[in-house]
Design a protein around this nucleic acid. Structure first.
Lengths: 227, 227
DNA sequence: ATTATCTATAGATCTATAGATAATGC
DNA sequence: ATTATCTATAGATCTATAGATAATGC
């Protein structure tokens, strides 16, 4: 291929504490910031990053670009703050979801079903500026690592839940099989949520059928004992 | 949600014959057009659509914006022409790949292995401006339909190959099972090719291992007779 | 003679800032 | 008194065009 950047690759700009976001001392300030992030989330998801101007975001949030720039250093800072907020919500959700205490007494299939149903619902109802995230991930190593870490938290959490129930699994190599099943389910969910580029046979069937089909296949592959 | 367009949704601009591309009567002209499309493919894939200026494309193709605009009505025409060229190549590849004559005497597993290996190799070596395609697909119904048709040609072709070998399939509902397996393999490939947002357990294992694992799972689910 | 390319730039955005005005809370 | 917001606009891009120059092929 060819070099993306003429000069040397820029170092990661993704850091946990965003000093380019004004702390926001007044209540009003925090409300405006939240509104700006909400607006950015919707617009980036609907129109894409480049097609959304800072004026669009400000207008949708009910303020002006001047106010926007009071809160965020520049357009990228707005984007990063949005990605970070989304990230934090996502991480909290994951941690609650894979908490072993929450699933005491549950069987593998129950856990996997909840994973599928919850992922589909969340993916449907929350605007995610996937394109924007891809653009940042393409250029920012730090953000890529952050994403990998998040995903790993989910994957490893689910894996631990399954492994704690390894006596349910008939497959001769439970761990390898479980990892593969999690890869498959993750891929299926992601494809189903983003039908634009990759239509599937199951695309026009209802979610319930998709979930059942996926679970049946997972159970068969893992060799889950129905007891 | 909220309306993406203030006015009514624009009608599809994706049509098969692009009248906004100059026919190109001289040999030189066709070469320049090809170079411009090559340049656009590389730059859109590497930097994204919005971050690539028409001047970038022209420079990479070794000409100037003036020449570019001689060939293409505007930036969108360049993009559409690129998507169309890619599409045509893809369709030709698909048609050759799922031609029943080509697979005479082959077993299901052989076909599926070729599908996996070929998709991975192609996806790796050819720059695809996925982001650009997503942006067009988001706004253009006609292009979405076109994509669905392409994908369907691949899916249906593969399905026909498998169904012609339904005696190999032990699963009680061979067609349903085959469709599901094709969905799963398609999703896995797509995820593996685009690791940016969705890291998997198998991500850091070599392709060969990924392919074997996927095929083993497919064979188990379909209940493929090993003869 | 016609087609393709280049040079130079007008016009349209869009980002980001400076300076004025309004709201907050000690 | 400090923080937040608004108004107005300078400066930076980028698209697309007009008009001049160069290459092609009948």
């Amino acid at each position: 291929m060819f070099p993306v950047n003429e000069d040397e690759m820029a170092r990661s700009q993704w850091i946990e504490d965003l000093e380019w976001v004004r702390p926001g001392l007044q209540t009003r300030s925090q409300q405006t910031q939240a509104k700006l992030l909400d607006a950015a989330a919707e617009l980036f998801a609907a129109k894409g990053l480049a097609a959304t101007t800072v004026a669009d975001v400000a207008a949708r949030a009910g303020c002006t670009t001047g106010a926007l720039y009071h809160h965020f250093k520049d357009k990228q800072a707005l984007l990063f703050a949005l990605l970070q907020r989304t990230s934090e919500e996502y991480r909290a959700t994951i941690q609650a979801a894979v908490d072993p205490a929450r699933w005491e007494g549950a069987r593998c299939l129950e856990i996997l079903r909840a994973y599928l149903e919850f992922s589909l619902e969340t993916g449907r109802n929350r605007p995610v500026s996937k394109g924007a995230a891809i653009e940042v991930a393409r250029e920012d190593e730090g953000f890529r690592e952050h994403l990998a870490e998040l995903r790993s938290e989910l994957n490893e959490g689910l894996l631990a839940l399954l492994m704690a129930r390894r006596d349910e699994i008939g497959h001769p190599e439970p761990e390898t099989a479980a990892k593969f099943v999690l890869d498959v389910l993750g891929s299926l969910i992601s494809t189903r949520l983003d039908e634009l580029l990759l239509p599937t046979f199951l695309a026009d069937r209802p979610d319930a059928e998709f979930v059942d089909e996926a679970l049946t296949a997972a159970a068969a592959y893992l060799g889950l004992r129905t007891d």
